[in-house]
Amino acid sequence: MSIFQELTNRDRVFEFLAPAQSPVDVRHGPILYLEDVSVSFDGFKAINNLNLTIDDGELRCIIGPNGAGKTTMMDIITGKTRPDTGSVWFGSRHNLLTKSEPDIASLGVGRKFQKPTVFEALTVFENLELAMAADKRVLPTLTAQMKPEYRDRIDEVLALIGLKELRQAFAGILSHGQKQWLEIGMLLMQKPRLLLVDEPVAGMTEQEMERTAELLTSLAGKQSVVVVEHDMGFVRSIARTVTVLHQGSVLAEGSMDQVSSHPDVIKVYLGEEA
């Protein structure tokens, strides 16, 4: 596929986009609120009366065994899957169950999938520039004049994700970890209020994992960040609050020490008897 064909693929372009500003009211509550959410697929209850609250600026880690409902939960938040019952609110004003995927992204919900999605035939700088562009149609994006404030924003994000020295490198030559950071940077170009990150350190080296931990913890307070991860060492390095999912609902919640010593977590997550 040519780079032009790749850019004109609307699903690919809009997959990682979030808006420059988000009209989200958090004065009277959390930034994300799920209440009694359930969804079934062919008789299997993937999410079962799930209740979850994420505060504005919070870094939350979500863990759980395979099939616990982590991916389905993120699909519901981003509008990819509609639950059978329950409610999902973004701030106090936006009912996410009434909105489409593009509408949810435009409110300020960004999602980072496990496999990095970057434009390998473009430079690091160009990837960030494309993510930032106000008009997402291909020709205006490619012909738009770079404003000084846009360049400053790109420089700021390049420094944050640690790719400042690689700004003119093609994304295709980056390491796996660097591609992950670049995609996070592409999301950050749009200043999302909520960032959902799925298994960010899968396949990374130890050094890349440490850098990713630094990056995600630096975002807390500026954005709300929800990290789904299997690597318990990584979770321990960044976790403030950990939520354990099991069979589609919350099994335990608290600090890493609290949930790792919880009898039910030991039994169902670690596969040991309490």
Results as ranks from 00 to 15, higher is better:
Phe90His: 02
Tyr269Asn: 08
Val226Ser: 09
Pro148Gln: 11
Lys45Phe: 04
Leu188Met: 13
Gly43Phe: 05
Arg10Asn: 11
Leu96Asn: 08
Asp36Ala: 13
Glu129His: 09
Thr53Met: 02
Gly29Val: 13
Met232Tyr: 00
Lys164Asn: 10
Ser92Lys: 05
Asp103Ala: 14
Ser100Ile: 09
Glu229Cys: 07
Lys115Arg: 15
Phe119Ile: 14
Leu96Glu: 08
Glu253Thr: 11
Leu17Pro: 02
Val26Gln: 00
Glu183Val: 12
Lys179Gly: 01
Arg193Glu: 08
Gly29Ala: 07
Gly177Asn: 11
Met204Thr: 02
Ile47Met: 11
Met73Arg: 08
Val39Ser: 02
Ala213Ile: 03
Ala252Tyr: 04
Gly110Pro: 01
Gln114Asn: 08
Ala171Asn: 11
Val235Arg: 05
Trp89Ser: 14
Gln168Asp: 15
Gly254Val: 05
Glu206Ile: 02
Asp257His: 07
Asp36Ile: 04
Ala252Gly: 04
Gly79Val: 07
Arg240Gln: 13
Arg240Gly: 13
Leu17Asp: 04
Glu149Gly: 00
Ile173Trp: 02
Phe125Arg: 04
Ile266Tyr: 01
Glu15Cys: 09
Ala171Met: 12
Val228Asp: 08
Thr78Glu: 07
Leu107Ile: 10
Arg193Pro: 00
Asn49Ile: 00
Gly108Asp: 10
Gly57Pro: 01
Ser100Asp: 07
Phe90Arg: 01
Asp56Val: 06
Ala202Leu: 09
Glu214Leu: 03
Leu107Gly: 07
Val13Leu: 14
Glu6Asn: 13
Ala20Trp: 01
Glu208Thr: 01
Met132Asp: 06
Ile184Tyr: 08
Asn95Trp: 06
Leu128Cys: 13
Glu165Leu: 08
Ser2Asp: 14
Met209Glu: 06
Glu58Asn: 07
Leu34Val: 03
Lys267Ser: 12
Asn95Phe: 03
Gln247Arg: 15
Ser92Met: 03
Ser224Tyr: 04
Ile238Val: 15
Pro102Arg: 10
Ser106Asp: 08
Glu58Phe: 02
Lys147Arg: 14
Val109Arg: 09
Val259Ala: 01
Asn49Thr: 01
Trp89Gly: 12
Glu165His: 07
Met186Lys: 15
Asn48Ala: 09
Gly43Leu: 07
Asp56Lys: 15
Leu182Met: 07
Leu182Gln: 04
Glu101Asp: 03
Lys115Pro: 05
Ile62Asp: 05
Glu273Lys: 15
Arg151Thr: 11
Pro116Glu: 13
